[in-house]
Design a protein around this nucleic acid. Sequence first.
DNA 1: ATTCTTTTTTTCGAAGCTCGAAAAAATAGC
DNA 2: GCTATTTTTTCGAGCTTCGAAAAAAAGAAT
Lengths: 419, 419
Amino acid sequence: MIVGVRHDDLRRQNRAMVIAAVRRAGQPSRTEIAAATALSHSTISTISASLIEERIVIEAGGSETAASRRGRPQVALGLNPGAASVVAVVLSLNALSATLIDYAGREIAQDVSRPSTLTLSRAELVEAVAAAVRRVLARAEAGAGPVLRMALGIQGITDSAARTLLWSPITPHSDVAFADALEAEFGVPATVENDCNMIAVALKGRAPQRYRDNFVAVLLSNGIGMGLMLRGSLFSGSRSSGGEFGHMTHIPDGALCRCGRRGCIEAYAGNYAILRHARGQGEDAPPAADIDDATMLELAQAARARPGREREAFARAGEALGFGLGSLFALIDPAPVALVGHGTSAFDMIEPAMRAALARTAGGRREAALSFDLEADETPLIREGCARQALAFVDHEIFAPGLAPAAEAAAPDYASRIA
Amino acid sequence: MIVGVRHDDLRRQNRAMVIAAVRRAGQPSRTEIAAATALSHSTISTISASLIEERIVIEAGGSETAASRRGRPQVALGLNPGAASVVAVVLSLNALSATLIDYAGREIAQDVSRPSTLTLSRAELVEAVAAAVRRVLARAEAGAGPVLRMALGIQGITDSAARTLLWSPITPHSDVAFADALEAEFGVPATVENDCNMIAVALKGRAPQRYRDNFVAVLLSNGIGMGLMLRGSLFSGSRSSGGEFGHMTHIPDGALCRCGRRGCIEAYAGNYAILRHARGQGEDAPPAADIDDATMLELAQAARARPGREREAFARAGEALGFGLGSLFALIDPAPVALVGHGTSAFDMIEPAMRAALARTAGGRREAALSFDLEADETPLIREGCARQALAFVDHEIFAPGLAPAAEAAAPDYASRIA
DNA sequence: ATTCTTTTTTTCGAAGCTCGAAAAAATAGC
DNA sequence: GCTATTTTTTCGAGCTTCGAAAAAAAGAAT
């Protein structure tokens, strides 16, 4: 339902805007905030006064105010690190980390452990996560702000409310209600986020100029994941965490996929598929659940050294990715593409076939000059994305609370073209 | 850049909201508008007073006020048909229509003609459209409101600013600048819209309950088109009119497509592909540009009558559509699907193979019970979509002018899940 | 050392918007 | 004709933002 804009929404909205401007710019002066938000100086003055009074923002004693020009020096504002904190948890195959992050986005404490995720029972898995959070909270210094949000990044499919892990390759259990468990124990709102979505959030945060409105992050590991940003915000399907790029069909009724179906992109481009082909096991060989990085590096070396099955396996992976990206571009044209994960270490073996395939698709016709950003280690990105996502929640829903902004307020289509 | 909400944006926004509420509800009372927008009665009273003074809205003399209850009767408000008018032009293969529509959305006049679009020169094609607009304007009655917007719906690819037809199967010319030509002659802002996008807009207007946030309209004709609605607004790619579902890859290096590439969905599911296969011409046979509906009906009859090439051709079309939809669902899960166009008349021959293919995809796993809405005649939908799109522009940009609403105002991701 | 310039930030009154309560309007029921 | 009921308008209060002017704080000039 369309809903009108009330008068108090206005303040809420502008408060959120000021917080966002400070988070983005780091240590902006009031004048810079006014310029960034197009609000008047007096308004910024009023809003920042109340934010300072509430200890959300602090005056960061005009330290490195660049070359001090003439005139009254700007006084830098910064987010008060002690205003709040959030927990970012990253759970992947046999690896778990929990990180406590202050309101300014800096790491306070971290706990890393290596549970055997494939063999743990459902209760043990949940307990492992809870215990990691417990440990990292115990490790926090006295001055840390109250924990106001937790985000758990996991490879797999979550429900659309981000409360439950529906399915994941790292555990045999389905429908694991992580968010409820964490909320029950710690009394802090929590969400379960898809790892690739968090990667996309992190990329947008790191390079907002490059990763602006539409882009895609593809994770190359044992499986193939995707995080999709459309019109500047994360796109997840209507019913689940969305973006299952790896399970688009590449070859109808083709190679056996980990998901039980046939011909998925992943069944050609996932690590298990590359390994399977390199070892000449045929397309019906059951996918390996856990392949260590060293094995994949060996395969890549072998592929570089001489023609043969290994080289062919990487080329087939590239071909699958190229056709998949071509179809993706045909549909939604998400210009920059980031490839993330250990699989990128063999990108030199993958790229030629990928570009060749892409060039043969309709979506790829404008992509001849497309460059791919590579990032081998996905874990820091996932952690960073979780932290950003959690902090954004605190910014909007706790420090600028009120009614949700009208969905209607999104720019209408004919206008969005002009912008 | 994020931009703050100014004080006057508020009025603009709420004005637009009231206009939208009236357009949606038809003849609502002030009380109903207040309920729909969650604004107070006093605000609605003020805003509607000024809209009435400006002759945008009129009091529609409490006519059919249902069973007149006790109390002061509601006075229905309606859009003033004479406040403005828009022109919706639909150009398709060898067919052209221009329709003048009043501000209340009712048809005032129409002009239908049959130019040979494939053989006209670029200038003649533009002139044909301009002439149709000229004729329909001449046919308007005296009381019609000023024309404030034109929208031209065409099969093909338009630029992202909706000003130029980049490519279309209905003409050999590319980069036809229809919008500039129309604006130059008539002095009215004009846009060129993709036909399938307009179909999606029309569906949303006709059944907003069913076609709400995420859905897709697929046009089955000589080519395969798609209109994609994401989060309640039309999605077009970053650079062009987007959604080239028909050119997602079905079979790598497969059948020859009209676009010159190989293996596109269209190269199996388009009319020319069905015809080609039914006649045993092989996958490299050049696509026919114009196939009349009677031919396709004959093929469907033959397929129904007996097994053979015709039946096989429709099954292959279904299979291509099924795998394509499966990939689409894997990516973005746009729950309701509408199939539009003359191709739906053979849907009984297409559906079984389509569902079978869909069931074999990851995206199709939840779609067993998916029902497809069929609509054989696409032209009225395109016209309706153009009219709605043009009227929405008048509503927002002319009758509630001001700065574009902040893009930032879109609901943040964690919130959108709850809604 | 003092005054002038320049730039940032705050203050203050004005204008605009929405809201709630109360009043006015308009009709059905008795 | 009076009362009850519902819709619509009116009016003052309370926010918010804005522009202009004032205040603050520093470097530059004398």
